[in-house]
Amino acid sequence: MQDLIEGRVWTLGRDVDTDQIISGKYLTIIDPNELKKHVLEIALPEFATRARPGDILVAGENFGSGSSREHAPQAMRAIGVGAVVADSFARIFYRNAINLGIPTIEARGVRAIFETGDVARIEMRSGRIANARTGASVPFPPLPHHLLELLEAGGLVEKVRRELAARAGSRGPP
């Protein structure tokens, strides 16, 4: 994970729940490349076809509320979302997104300083997100060490893989 993340912004409203990100009828889909065709279908219908890798979602309060469906952040990862930023997140979405290695940033007041099409610059370690067009910026509490480590590893799968490998290694050669 690099310290500076930059990308084109798509804005969303408040209370965008997981039903609006991936609706119930797609929950039997496992392939993320299939899922991504339906991402944000209810909340932002043009996103799935027009998003480019590295684009950044900027939402209002309570983003990702509702069910525990990991389909939501998975579809975002498959489409190549560079970061998800919101005034606040629902907790399971937040965990899922971080565990999948998506930079997920809670920054109060962030929604108000962006419009769709702006470019966002996020400084992960110092904790600031700025609008490159207007110069407006808001601070955010940098992620705790534990979560930065998770993102650096590229997500939970890689982190546990390393841990299990180290464990097997420490048992010595067979």
Binding site: S68, I92, R95, N99
Partner: peptide, 24 residues
């Protein structure tokens, strides 16, 4: 599942997580 919370009624901490986290 997000409604795993229901089991908190037992005086436990019961909570929902995603499937990748469940793998861990």
């Amino acid at each position: 599942d997000s409604h795993t919370n229901m089991l908190g009624a037992m005086g436990a901490l019961a909570t929902g997580i995603g499937p990748t986290e469940m793998a861990a």
